[in-house]
Design a binder for these strands. Structure first.
Length: 116
RNA sequence: CAAGUAGACAAGGUGGUCGCCGGUUUUGUCUGUUCUAAAAACAGAUAAAACGGGAGGAAAGUCCGAGCUCCACAGGACACAGUGCUCUGUAACGCAGAGUCCCGGUGACGGGAAGGAAAGUGCAACAGAAAAUAUACCGUCCUGAAUUAUAUUUGGGAUAAGGGUGAAAUGGCGGGGUCACAGCGACUUAAUGUAAGAGCCCACCGCUUCGGUGGCGACAUCGAAGGCCUGGCAAACCCCACUGGGAGAAAGGCUAAAUAGGGAGGAAUGAAGCGGUCCGCUUCGCUAGUACCUCUGGGUAAGCCGUUUGACCUUGCUGGCAACAGAGAGGCUAGAUAAAUGAUCACCCACGACAAAACUCGGCUUACGGUCUACUUAAAAA
RNA sequence: CGGGGUGUAGCGCAGCUUGGCUAGCGCGCUUGAAUGGGGUUCAAGAGGUCGUGGGUUCAAAUCCCGCCACCCCGA
């Protein structure tokens, strides 16, 4: 099982973000909103968007790290290759632990397998 | 014990598992160069392994000061902005150290944009006669005129010892002293007398000037003289002194890609650099529109360098009250770019606050839980 | 990274230049009058740490300094 998470699995370019936002589908639960679209690579990629409303730089970093970690540990559940943008929702606080959001995130990934 | 003042310190630790960023070494693969080719070497990319590294005291706010880069190796004048007790430190500062003076506190200690009000302009509500002018005004007294008179109105003169307001009224406070020098009011009287009271005199404090002593200096202190003649506000304009050219890492440089070529302007009193104005400097250009230059609009917008060795850190020594400086030895300590330093489990200390680099330093300010050290405590309470 | 602005009554604003007049205006709110009742109208009234902490001054919403929050602009 591959738990690595290298830079080629990040969304980086402004145009890539715009493509996902404009053309992707929206999937969400109580913690996170995902924009998803199929890509042409042999792997999936993810980008993170955290607004200033989440808090100061330390809290925003914490939110990004939690989302990155939950993706890293569960991406093997994906059977399709997609580009994802993840945005934490209002009840997302930095007091959360990984186990609090992991179950919901898995269900969203499994839902993608059926939709794409 | 409590309350308080000043300063210093660390910023959870250890281990396991799964990850992230960049560095060095080794190995593999691919590409390029040298070469006829291979091997080998070098360079680059990529993958794996090993080794060692990976946020702060404020990294924050962006409030000052510098380095660095480009514009003239940043020049002159004006404008504008900032600073404003003294000396020292520093690359520099609006910072720091040591002092002076003033203010606050019982005290340890803390705070102070602390130059100039006889250069000029301005301001001071309400109250008050008056707010900077010692004149006027009110009051009092004498006197002339009008009115039949008490009285009222009005002209002139005298009186500056009355006018009690205000944040502020010609320095403050205490003592002496004056009543035929001038003279307001009170009590008293036939005349008169009595007490209070300013000018006046003296002492002390303050102020100004001069001189002595100490200190690099701010200033302190001692003595003498002057009766004080020019009140307050410059965080009002201003004056004086000093400082400041502008833009900022999206600076700036290189490579790649893209330069279709739309619109406007230009002629020696020209355009741009030059982001307050003028001068000066530099570059380009000067009888014609097609070329050149400038502005505007549109397009491309990927990578590398800058980018971490620096006014650096540690350590003891020397000089200095100190800030700091000097020479010596040792060390290399993040370098990301949709943006790395994390997740989880166990144990321990006994629950960990505020908060994360973005070119780099020196400060300031603000946020914040804890540990330690030194010092202070009048009044009240135990 | 750089530049600018705002904060005053429940809401929207003025006053700040040149410090003092009572911190004012509109809407809203309360009470009363008028109406059979409501609206309109009229009268009276309540409601303010002038964002926050210091400083200058006799006196600060106003001047100066430090913070906080929000908004806008440029590259």
């Amino acid at each position: 099982m591959n738990y690595h998470f290298t830079k080629s699995e990040h969304l980086t370019k402004k145009k890539e973000f715009e493509r996902v936002f404009n053309e992707g589908k929206v999937i969400k639960n109580e913690f996170v909103v995902l924009y998803v679209i199929r890509n042409d690579f042999s792997h999936s990629r993810i980008g993170l968007v955290v607004s200033k409303k989440v808090g100061n730089a330390v809290r925003r970093n914490r939110a990004k790290r939690l989302l990155r970690e939950v993706y890293r540990l569960n991406k093997h559940l994906l059977t399709v290759h997609v580009d994802i943008i993840a945005i934490p929702r209002q009840p997302f606080t930095t007091d959360l632990k990984l186990s609090d959001i992991e179950e919901g995130f898995r269900k969203l990934l499994l839902k993608m397998n059926g939709d794409f």
